[in-house]
Design a protein around this nucleic acid. Structure first.
Length: 377
DNA sequence: GACTAGTGTCGAC
DNA sequence: TTACGGTCGACACTAGTC
């Protein structure tokens, strides 16, 4: 083996990105096998009743009719109006979380380090497990897929690559039930013709900006110099995009840290500009957020509200307190004040209302104590 | 000018 | 033709302080 290969062996990381296929809808198919082969649409119904709300997930049969995440339920029903066997189901978050926990326990066993990302995906670093050699990666991934299928009945798509960035794009490359391996020498070719929107963190707005700069594909993005990118997007994101275009990503796989914020949001029964008409919902949101914080042993130092207006634009406000609190009355008082301020600044009626607490600390003082013990200031 | 805290926006799922 | 959720993380911008 040449020196270069030996160096490669030592430097190269091997990372899996596991993404469960149409997760919520797949969970529903497992619970009720008669759904298999029919369009299945998992919906978030809002408080307005009827079919107000949006599609959370749909299976591939439903996607054939253009029914995908995020579209209004009414539109989804319209697209499936000629398909009587189509099923519209409400979200059952507790059930999906239970399935996710069982699945991730299996995934975790397959690597040295595991990072949970959301309810239906995660990264596993398998570098040590397969002794730095890509040769064993495919076999390991197939074994993982088989165990998930056998134990839980779940299918997933796996991307294997030398870093998280490429592994994530790879898992999306072949779906459902896919397996895509991108070896170190193949990264550039793999990325070059893909849309810039495939890069993690590039959503609609960033994609539009990049398109205007002449970059529709990742290959085209690699032609833009770092000065142009940092000027447009700032230092952090500009540098990230510059590296991403070259398939460079040094982010380690890290065990997920605890939450940093807690929030609740609801859709008002009727859009309004009158704060008094929102108070019941606001109080209930504050109670929910407070309950969640107390149950998890958190106090908070920042309180925020979010308004989504009738034109679907978003308005947020937040305040930092002098010190941490877990007082429910204070939460409601500050949230109400922020809502009054935000409503006064806009003429457009409010459709949805949200409350958030952040800058969390353990209300038992453990946070402070552990920092003291480890010498952190 | 460097640093920090507070605040608002964007994006993922 | 239209239709429109909920929860969380990360970072940019801005103003204040030294």
């Amino acid at each position: 083996m040449s020196l270069t290969n030996a160096q490669d062996r030592n430097m190269t990381r091997i990372i899996f990105h596991i993404d469960f296929d149409y997760f919520y809808a797949q969970c529903e198919e497992l619970r009720d096998p008669s759904l298999k082969g029919k369009p299945v649409v998992v919906c978030v119904y809002s408080a307005r009743g009827g079919d107000s709300g949006a599609v959370s997930t749909s299976n591939y049969k439903a996607r054939e009719y253009g029914v995908k995440s995020g579209i209004p339920i009414k539109l989804a029903k319209n697209r499936l109006k000629d398909i009587p066997e189509a099923k519209f189901l409400p979200m059952d978050r507790d059930y999906y979380e239970e399935m996710s926990e069982r699945a991730m326990q299996i995934v975790r066993k397959y690597g040295d380090k595991f990072e949970l990302v959301g309810i239906d995906e995660g990264f596993v670093e398998v570098t040590e497990k397969i002794e730095h050699a890509f040769v064993g990666a495919e076999e390991l991934a197939i074994a993982l897929k088989q165990e998930l299928k056998k134990e839980l009945g779940l299918t997933c798509s796996i991307g294997i690559a030398p870093n998280k960035l490429v592994a994530k794009i790879a898992s999306d490359f072949q779906k459902p039930d896919g397996l895509t391996i991108v070896k170190p020498g193949e990264v550039k070719t793999f990325l070059t013709d893909l849309s810039v929107g495939k890069i993690l963190g590039v959503g609609k707005k960033t994609e539009e900006s990049l398109n205007e700069m002449g970059a529709k594909t990742i290959g085209e993005l690699s032609n833009i110099d770092i000065y142009g990118l940092t000027k447009q997007f700032g230092k952090k994101i500009g540098t990230y995009l510059y590296n991403a275009a070259r398939g460079i990503d040094e982010e380690p796989v890290v065990e997920s840290e605890s939450v940093t914020q807690l929030s609740r949001i609801t859709t008002l029964k009727k859009s309004t500009n009158a704060v008094e008409e929102m108070l019941k919902d606001l109080e209930s949101l504050c109670k929910d957020v407070h309950k969640s914080a107390v149950e998890q042993g958190f106090s908070f130092r920042s309180i925020g509200i979010m308004l989504i207006l009738d034109n679907l634009s978003i308005k947020t406000k937040s305040r930092s307190l002098k010190s941490h609190t877990d007082n429910a009355d204070e939460l409601f008082k500050v949230a109400r004040m922020l809502v009054e301020e935000a409503v006064a600044e806009s003429q457009i009626p409010v459709r949805r209302l949200g409350v958030k607490v952040s800058e969390l600390a353990s209300s038992k003082g453990q946070d402070t104590l552990s920092r003291f013990m480890t010498g952190e200031s």
